[in-house]
Amino acid sequence: MARVVVDVMPKPEILDPQGQAVANALPRLGFDGITAVRQGKHFELEVADDVDDATLAKIAETFLANPVIEDWIVRRVEA
């Protein structure tokens, strides 16, 4: 078994109102110096050893992310 991380982020040109709301809250909470926040999704998959990279990319592209509005990255990490 391996752990695979898939990070999904809104594309840069897509408005991210949630990230903006977080960014706007930070100064109110006394945290200065944060100029921008973008909010995405982080998936952790426990993956059998025979699942290849092409399959993982297909999972990310067709299901975990919507490529119309989101970018995705697949990483294998040490469990």
């Binding site: 809104p10 897509i14 408005l15 109102p17 949630q18 709301a21 919507n66 119309v68 509005i69």
Partner: peptide, 8 residues
């Protein structure tokens, strides 16, 4: 695609 309303 349909995304979160701009004013949340």
């Amino acid at each position: 695609a349909l995304v979160r309303n701009h004013k949340l």
